[in-house]
Design a binder for these strands. Structure first.
Length: 425
RNA sequence: GUGGUCGUAGCUCAGCUGGUCAGAGCGCCGCGUUGUGGUCGCGGAUGUCGGGGGUUCGAAUCCCCUCGGUCACCCCA
């Protein structure tokens, strides 16, 4: 480790087997949850022209600071994707698929920031987007899918925080009210937050500092400054979630990181994880984003979920263990390896998962490998078996019996299929 | 990017205020069983003590720089 000439770059990590099996299973679980709701996989490039991610809006400085951007050999200013939504919207605008358009994705995401647990320079997200409908029932569907996904992973100690940003006009009006309100109490805020009052007043609501929180607990909430239409939208969302039996907490001070959100915003936060960066799934509606990226005005909503954080939350609840890596049989050949070579090919072609030892190791070492592989059966090919045209099938686990048998090579596949189906309870 | 903290074999870690301090457990390899694993017994290998520089007669141990982990801020998944 310390002597290795190269190591994974700061803030990145290798996921080795058997841990990586959890990733495979998580992705399969996610795909199954969202595909049964009609979402299809979108594969899009991991980098885009910088403008796709960096738009003219408040907070762009912060976004830019964390962007992994560079100029390529053709002089194009590009950036590795820092999040999933913008690429999806860009693809929507480019290809103009029939709305409503429902897609899901699984992708690495890159942010140039100082790493800590649950925060990496390359992390991985699964997510989905639904473009082309402003129906609040879509909000309910999207949030429900997030909830179902977390349930499918086995997570139970998760809190759903719900808020609304209203329309851009609602938001603008509210920000004005909030800024004024905060300005009057500037001196009571934590010193570090005072500067944000003028530039990003809503960020002040999100502060983790006690002094600030004490003040903002009384701050005007956006829910009291919504237009009738926005209020109706939000009410329908809450009604839908309640009808689904999904418990949520209204969080008037929930401020999502991206500026493009309108109306519903939400986060799922695990209650057992102590980290400051705990949100495992978050998203919201972004009815102006398509237009911002050059498309026809089109409403949209989606969420992203960080795989690394999901797994941390799963660990905290001791759920979603890695599945056992399992092969069915391990071939031991003490006659030189030719038969192991041919027999493993034959078994695999027959759908039997198998492995073998290489390097012409001694019987004992090969048996050790068989044991370590977790296979319930070892197949032994030695001089005697060769002469008789048979194979010795030795059970390695009590669940599959204890007596080894001599089986003719012709019957071997059928015998193994039968034996593998007879695991004792 | 700011501040704190940690970094010793593949893994988890012990090494007090500098002087057999290069170790333990697990894992790995071999042998006991030249055709039988998981148990047991015996034996063995692996570290420039994250890297570089400095102080000292002498540094894993003190100082500086650097790389990486981690925690908080910031930001967010």
């Amino acid at each position: 480790m310390a002597r290795a000439k190269y190591q994974a770059p700061k803030g990145t990590q290798d996921i080795l087997p058997p841990e990586s099996a959890r990733w495979e299973r998580l992705l399969a679980t996610y795909a199954s949850v969202v595909e049964r709701a009609g979402y299809g996989l979108l594969q899009s490039p991991m980098f885009e022209e910088l403008g796709v991610f960096q738009r003219e809006s408040e907070g762009a400085d912060a976004v830019r600071k964390e962007m992994y951007d560079f100029t390529d050999k053709g002089g194009r200013h590009v950036a590795l994707r820092p999040e999933g939504t913008a690429s999806v919207v860009r693809a929507f605008v480019q290809h103009q698929p029939t709305a409503p358009w429902k897609v899901w994705y699984a992708t690495p995401a890159f942010r140039y920031e100082r790493a800590q647990a649950g925060r990496y320079r390359q992390h991985h997200q699964v997510g989905l987007e639904m473009l082309g409908s402003a129906d609040p029932d879509v909000d309910v569907e999207v949030i429900s899918l997030g909830w179902e996904f977390l349930q499918a992973l086995g997570l139970r100690q998760v809190e759903l925080l719900l808020n609304t940003m209203g329309t851009p006009a609602d938001r603008l009006a509210y920000v004005g009210v909030l800024r004024e309100w905060l300005a009057e109490r500037r001196g009571e805020l934590a010193e570090e937050d005072r500067g944000k009052v003028d530039s990003h007043p809503m960020r002040v609501l999100d502060s983790k500092r006690r002094d600030t929180q004490r003040v903002t607990a009384e701050a005007p909430a956006i829910s009291d400054h919504l237009s009738p239409e926005s209020a109706a939208h939000f009410a329908r969302v809450q009604e839908g979630l309640t009808a689904r039996g999904i418990v949520f907490n209204l969080a008037p001070r929930l401020v999502r990181g991206f500026d493009y959100y309108t109306h519903t915003t939400f986060e799922f936060v695990p209650s057992l994880v102590e980290n400051a960066q705990a949100t495992i799934l978050g998203g919201g509606r972004y009815d102006g984003l398509v237009e911002e990226l050059g498309g026809q005005p089109t409403p949209g909503i989606g969420f992203g979920s960080g795989i690394e954080r999901l797994l941390i939350a799963c660990d905290a609840e001791a759920v979603f263990p890695a599945p056992d890596r399992r092969i069915d049989v391990f071939v031991i050949d003490v006659t030189g390896g030719t038969h192991a070579r041919d027999l493993t090919a034959e078994l695999r072609a027959a759908g039997i998962r198998c492995d073998r030892a290489f390097d012409q190791k001694a019987m004992r070492a090969q048996m050790k490998g068989a044991d370590r592989s977790g296979a319930p059966f070892a197949i032994i090919i030695g001089d005697q078996e060769l002469a008789d045209g048979v194979a010795t099938v030795r059970p390695l686990r009590a669940d599959f019996g204890s007596d080894q048998q001599t089986i003719s090579r012709a019957d071997l596949v059928a015998h193994l299929r039968d034996a593998l189906s007879k695991e004792a309870p």
